[in-house]
Write a protein that binds this DNA or RNA. Structure first.
Length: 417
RNA sequence: GCGGUUGUGGUGAAGCGGUUAACACUCCGGAUUGUGGCUCCGGCACGCAUGGGUUCGAUCCCCAUCAAUCGCCCCA
C-alpha cells in the first residue's frame, strides 16, 4: 500500500517549479524596488504568539491551527500566517533600532486545518509584506500599490481592489455598540451563525452571505458614520493617494478582516478567475498588534497573498512563462561506459549541460532518447572513438556529423550554440 | 465543520452483474550487426481508490473509510 501526502498538502513537481520560481523572482524584484527586505521566520512558534496576535475568538485560532505539545511540554503551533511571527522577530531582534520604518517581506508555507478545496490547502504558501513603524496613509497606499503592481506585472487580469476601514480602538467600540443596538430587535430574522456573531463580532453580520442581502441591512449603521476624526481623515487620505496614482477601488463597507489585529485600512484583492476562493490577497493596518505582543505602541500595515491561488489564476490566463532550457549534448555510448563517463564529466565541468542514459540500451534507443531530450548534439562514443580518443558529434537538427578529438569537443559544441 | 459530485493502467477514457477490462496517447522492445524525429510490428491493469456486505457470481448494487472536486463556512 502506498503512502500518500497528507490531505490538503501538495507536491510541487519539477514541471511546475518554473512557475513558482518565476513568481518568486517577480516578488523579490518588486520588493527590491519598493525597498522591502526579506525575512524568514520559523515555521512553528509558541501557540501563545498566535493566540495573542491573531486573537482568540477568530476562526483561525479557534479551529484551524496545527497545535501540538512537543517533547519539552511546550505548546507549539505551525504558523497559520506570518504577521505575528514577523512582529515577534521584529521585537525580539530589536529591528526598530535600525530605523523608524522597517519594511519586510516573506515567502513561505503556512498551515491551516481547513477543509481542502481548489485554492485552499492545509499547507499553502504566502507572500507578504509588513511595513512597521509608520502610521502615515502613504504607507497604506504604498503597500496596496506594491500588491497591485506585482499582480499586474505577472499579467493577472480581472482584479478588483476592495477597500474599507475598520476603525481603531477609539471608534470601533462605538460602532460595535450601535450595531448591537441595531440588531438587538432583529435577532429572530438572523441566521444561526449570525446570532453567534452578534455576541462575538457583530461586524461580521454585515458580511454574512445569508443575511447580508436582507432589506434591513441597508439601514444598519455604517462604520463611516462612527469613525473618529483621525480614522476618517486617514481613510480619506488613503483614497486620495490611490486616486492620484490612478488606482481604482471599490469601497466595501462589508469588508471585515477576520483577524483581530486589524485597524483602520482593510483591503482585499479579488480575482474573478478564482471561483469560491476569490481573494488572492488581503491585508490592512494593524496599529495595535505590536503593543499586544509586548512592544511599545507602533503602527504597522501589511498584506499577504496566496501563491497557490495566484498560480491558479495565472494558469487560467495562460500567463505563465514557458521557456525550456535546452541541453547541449546527449552522450551515446556503445560499450564505452568509462570513456563516456569521462567525456560527460569533462564537458559538465566545462559548464555544458549534458545528459545521457545509463541503461546500456541499443544505439537506436539511445539516439531516440537523445532526440527526445532536446539536446542539440548527440555525442557518440564506441570502440573506434575510444581507440582514437575522439568523439563523433552529430547535430540533431541538421543531421550533420563529424568526428573530433576528445579535447576539441567542448569547443565544437560551444561554437554551435 | 456542513452539503453535493466523483474515484478504472503513466495519461485521457469505454464498460456498468456473468468468458481473455475496449480504444487512443505515452512508455518499453523490435524491423540484421554503431545512428533519432516518419512508418510498421509486438509488449505493458496479479486488476477497476481501500475495507466490508448483498449475490451462484460484482469494476458495475449497498455501507463505511480515504481522497479529489464544487458550494457553504472561513480566508490567502
Amino acid at each position: 500500500m502506498l503512502i500518500n501526502a497528507p490531505r490538503g498538502t501538495k507536491d510541487i513537481l519539477p514541471d511546475q517549479i518554473k512557475n513558482w520560481i518565476a513568481v518568486e523572482n517577480k516578488m523579490r524584484e518588486i520588493c527590491a524596488r519598493y525597498g522591502y527586505d526579506e525575512i524568514r521566520t520559523p515555521i512553528f512558534e509558541h501557540t501563545e504568539l498566535f493566540q495573542r496576535g491573531i486573537g482568540e475568538g477568530t476562526d483561525v485560532v479557534d479551529k484551524e491551527m496545527y497545535t501540538f505539545v512537543d517533547r519539552g511540554n511546550r505548546s507549539i503551533t505551525l504558523r497559520p500566517e506570518n504577521t505575528a511571527s514577523v512582529i515577534r522577530a521584529y521585537l525580539q531582534n530589536k529591528l526598530y533600532a535600525a530605523s523608524t520604518l522597517v519594511k519586510l517581506f516573506y515567502i513561505g508555507s503556512m498551515f491551516r486545518y481547513d477543509r481542502p478545496q481548489a485554492g485552499r490547502l492545509r499547507e499553502f504558501h504566502q507572500f507578504g509584506v509588513e511595513a512597521i513603524g509608520e502610521g502615515n496613509p502613504e504607507v497604506d497606499a504604498e503597500v496596496i500599490l506594491l500588491a497591485l503592481d506585482l499582480l499586474r506585472e505577472l499579467g493577472l487580469e480581472g482584479l478588483t481592489l476592495k477597500l474599507n476601514t475598520v476603525g481603531c480602538p477609539k471608534c470601533r467600540p462605538v460602532y460595535r455598540q450601535k450595531l448591537t443596538h441595531f440588531f438587538s430587535d432583529k435577532l429572530d430574522e438572523l441566521c444561526g451563525d449570525c446570532r453567534t456573531r452578534y455576541e462575538k463580532n457583530p461586524m461580521r453580520i454585515l458580511d454574512c452571505k445569508i443575511d447580508g442581502g436582507k432589506e434591513f441591512m441597508e439601514e444598519a449603521p455604517k462604520i463611516k458614520d462612527c469613525l473618529c476624526d483621525e480614522c476618517r481623515e486617514h481613510f480619506r487620505q488613503v483614497q486620495e493617494l490611490l486616486t492620484a496614482v490612478g488606482v481604482e477601488y471599490e469601497i466595501d463597507a462589508r469588508l471585515v478582516r477576520g483577524l483581530d489585529y486589524y485597524t483602520k485600512t482593510a483591503f482585499e484583492i479579488r480575482c474573478d478567475e478564482l471561483g469560491a476562493q476569490a481573494a488572492v490577497a488581503g491585508g490592512g493596518r494593524y496599529d495595535g498588534l505590536i503593543e499586544e505582543l509586548g512592544g511599545i505602541s507602533t503602527p504597522a500595515i501589511g498584506f499577504a497573498l496566496g501563491i497557490e491561488r495566484l498560480l491558479i489564476a495565472l494558469e487560467k490566463k495562460d500567463r505563465l512563462p514557458k521557456g525550456e532550457d535546452a541541453i547541449d549534448g546527449f552522450v551515446v555510448s556503445m560499450g564505452a561506459a568509462a570513456y563516456a563517463f569521462e567525456l560527460m564529466s569533462a564537458l559538465r565541468r566545462a559548464g555544458l549541460r549534458i545528459a545521457t542514459d545509463f541503461a546500456k540500451r541499443s544505439m537506436k534507443a539511445q539516439m531516440k532518447l537523445a532526440a527526445r531530450s532536446g539536446a542539440r548534439f548527440a555525442l557518440i562514443v564506441g570502440e573506434d572513438e575510444v581507440r582514437d580518443r575522439t568523439v563523433t558529434i552529430k547535430n540533431l537538427s541538421t543531421s550533420e556529423q563529424s568526428t573530433v578529438a576528445f579535447d576539441d569537443v567542448k569547443e565544437a559544441v560551444v561554437q554551435c550554440r
